[in-house]
Design a binder for these strands. Structure first.
Length: 480
DNA sequence: TTTTGAGTTGTTCGA
DNA sequence: GTCGAACAACTCAAA
């Protein structure tokens, strides 16, 4: 056994924070000094390397974490390599006797990390992993029969009753660091877009990093949580917490969110319950991903393998560009492209439109979101798309097809959201804002809109598309 | 083992 | 304009 005075490597991954970080705290509790390292590993993730928007976020998150560590006298060591090789090299370089990290749940990461753990143990190095990202480990929660939950409501009841998280740990006041080995420069990771620089909307909208996350949580609980139940469905207002990307990168833990909510004076309100259940959905998605590792790539219900997807590349492209002719859909897609995030209500509407109106495979939507969302998360993204498609574990019934006009009228009654993201429709009266093709020529002319020139005609007729989708689902209904 | 109640987010139609 | 029922059957989870 190596001496306890050897350095411990804290391998940071999706836990880019100092507070409530179990791996960091456990490493600090040893008598040896710390070395904090982040490895940009593009060798192991297969098709699921972070997309463009995620990489932008990651850059800033790493920059923040490096600053926070520097304030305590430490250094964030950066390396770009296959983590399995690089950790071995780092252990040799630094004489570290232990490597600590918080768990990831992506199938590729589980596989990699298991290999790393056995490598290290074989070399006589202590290797320990911790839960830093979830309220409940997926293997710790099961039905009475011992099976993984496949339905959200019983899962959530069980989590609340039997797995409420213990209070989060604080942030260490002081840490003892070893002399750091060489580090690459963050700039050389090339995580930021350059040709062209499309990130200005992201810069204006987000504050990546641990303090940004805490600030957002505090502001949400104080001024928006009370109305969460109703306001969360209105995309023109800031009714949601906006914590998704912070949670994804581990700048804040779900346990911290849970306790901040419960301890707030409005922590027992309906708004609080409803908000926490969204944290529950994140947990549930990870539960599904862990127990069904093909979830991001394969229909959970196999009968959907026979579904005939007739959508064309042209349809898909119109969707990605926000040029479908349905304002609420196009506004959402443009918001996504502009700021790397889309309001949850609109995610459902746009996803339903791609799948059911355009009959494009949900995997293509999942891939687009993966590349464009700052909060792109393998578990949540897959769960969302499979839910909408009806192919998922606890999915929407197949006959549930969102109507983009009535959804617009219901949740964006003034048309503010549409006007924000589709400026060419800004002067259209609200009567027509969600269905410009129903406006007479004079109204359109007065608003400065020529359909087919300034803004597209609808690329499909929703009524017809709905019937086609229902017919297509009818065909696979009785499949084995 | 069998039974029973329940299941995120919707739309349309007809009274 | 508003409201309830139909849209399908199936699988899950607990008793």
């Amino acid at each position: 056994m190596t001496s306890d005075d050897t350095p411990a490597l804290v391998w940071l991954r999706k836990d880019l924070r100092l507070s409530d970080n179990p791996a960091l705290l456990a490493a600090a509790a040893r008598s040896g000094p710390l070395l904090c390292v982040y490895i940009l590993d593009d060798q192991n993730a297969g098709d699921w390397l972070p997309g463009g928007a995620s990489k932008w976020w990651l850059h800033h998150s790493l920059k923040n974490l490096a600053q926070d560590l520097a304030a305590l006298g430490g250094t964030l060591v950066l390396r770009r390599a296959d983590a399995r090789k690089e950790l071995k090299a780092l252990v040799e370089e630094t004489g570290a006797g232990a490597v600590y990290w918080n768990r990831m749940y992506e199938p590729w990461a589980i596989k990699r990390d298991e290999a790393i753990k056995s490598d290290l143990k074989e070399a006589g190095i202590t290797a320990r992993s911790f839960n830093g990202s979830l309220i409940v480990e997926p293997w710790e929660i099961a039905t009475k029969q011992g099976n993984p939950y496949k339905v959200f409501t019983p899962y959530w009841r069980s989590l609340k009753a039997d797995h409420a998280p213990s209070p989060p740990a604080g942030r260490p006041d002081s840490l003892v660091f070893a002399d750091p080995p060489r580090s690459e420069r963050l700039e050389d990771f090339n995580l930021l877009p350059s040709r062209p620089d499309w990130a200005s909307g992201l810069r204006d909208s987000w504050t990546p990093g641990e303090s940004g996350a805490q600030g957002r949580l505090g502001a949400f609980i104080k001024s928006r949580m009370d109305d969460y139940d109703s306001a969360r469905d209105v995309p023109s207002t800031q009714g949601t917490s906006g914590l998704s990307a912070h949670l994804h990168h581990g700048e804040i833990s779900p346990r911290q969110v849970w306790h901040a909510v419960k301890n707030a004076k409005n922590g027992a309100t309906e708004g609080a319950d409803s908000f926490l259940s969204e944290i529950g959905w994140r947990e549930f998605s990870y539960n599904l991903l862990y127990h069904f590792p093909h979830f991001p790539e394969k229909n959970f219900q196999e009968k959907f393998d026979r579904f005939e997807w007739t959508g064309t590349d042209k349809d898909y492209t119109a969707w990605t560009r926000g040029l479908t002719g349905y304002p609420i859909v196009d506004a959402g897609m443009r918001q996504l492209y502009a700021i790397g995030w889309m309001h949850n209500r609109v995610r459902m509407i746009t996803a339903s439109f791609l799948i059911k109106d355009l009959m494009v495979h949900w995997r293509r939507g999942e891939d687009w979101f993966w590349d464009t969302l700052v909060d792109a998360d393998l578990a949540s993204n897959a769960a969302g798309w499979q839910w909408t498609a009806g192919s998922g574990a606890d999915a929407a019934p197949y006959f549930r097809v969102f109507n983009p006009v009535s959804q617009g009228e219901k949740f964006d009654p003034q048309g503010d959201y549409v006007r924000t993201w589709i400026p060419e429709l800004a002067n259209l009266p609200k009567r027509f804002i969600h269905a410009p093709w129903t406006a007479d020529r004079d109204t359109l002319a007065k608003a400065g809109v020529v359909l087919g020139q300034d803004y597209p005609e609808p690329i499909v007729d929703h009524g017809e598309a709905r019937k086609n989708a229902l017919a297509a689902f009818e065909k696979i209904k009785d499949a084995v």
